[in-house]
Amino acid sequence: MFPRPIEKASPPAKALYKIALPVALIIWLLPLLAVALTSLRSQADILTGNYWGWPTSFNMLENYTAIFENTPIGQYILNSFRVTIPTVIGAVGLSCMTGFALAVYKFKGNLILFFLFVAGNFVPFQILMVPVRDFTVSLGIYNTISGLALFHIAFQTGFCTLFMRNFIKALPFELVEAARVEGVSEIRIFWYVVLPLMKPAIAALSVLIFTFIWNDYFWAMVLTQGADTQPITAGLNSLNGQWVSSWHLVSAGSIVAAMPPVIMFFLMQRHFIAGLTLGAVK
């Protein structure tokens, strides 16, 4: 283990480490803590410039009710879910198949197709922006949840394929061969042999894609507008323009926007970290 385990260090060093941990954490998360605290402040605190001291009163209920009652933030959150969930299902579903095809079958162009997915995953969004917007408009689904979700599914399929293909490649190939010898059809092999083994990969990818899509801002700006369709990231930006200097509301809004992926992260932490590292560091 590196560095040397702290248990083996001298008592003062051990004590120092135990103090350093929480102190470092507080400094690291200071911006977030300040936001959390500010989301509880009163208008009066904000007006008198009490941003960093202890709040004179706690207004959690008031501030959070205020943002839900006076702004469409609830709608924005709902939109985010309506974009994110179909994208997770779509991209993970499609990539189970593409990943399976690229990992199990040997055919001409296999590696080229695989590299196509990988490379596409890294292109700058801007080079896709104008044509994708045009295409979406011509399908008549500009400014709809479906329009945004369809693009996300397509784009995320690149990353997911990279991930799935590497995952399946690492599975014992003998399983597939044994099934073939028994005369099991390819589709059944996919469904009954490989898919059950992919559960950890599916879980890991789902959490990861959920976070990516939830936090997407650029495509939300390009493909949607207005509170009917915009997800929370774009919505928060718009609300920020309306809540000028009302930092207690901006903070409360930020906390609300950050909540779902944070909860997701804590519930599925193991899968999340597996996803970040497993698909990539092979």
């Binding site: 990539s95 198949m97 095809a101 055919f107 596409g120 104008v130 369809l150 390819e186 589709i187």
Partner: peptide, 29 residues
């Protein structure tokens, strides 16, 4: 022929989406 057809089948939906939304737009741009 399933060993030859299956990969096409599995790849088609994902690849199609990816071509339409990612690969083709690069050239269009």
């Amino acid at each position: 022929n399933q060993q030859r057809l299956a990969p096409v089948l599995f790849l088609l939906p994902g690849l199609l989406m990816f071509l339409v939304y990612v690969v083709v737009p690069i050239f269009q741009s």
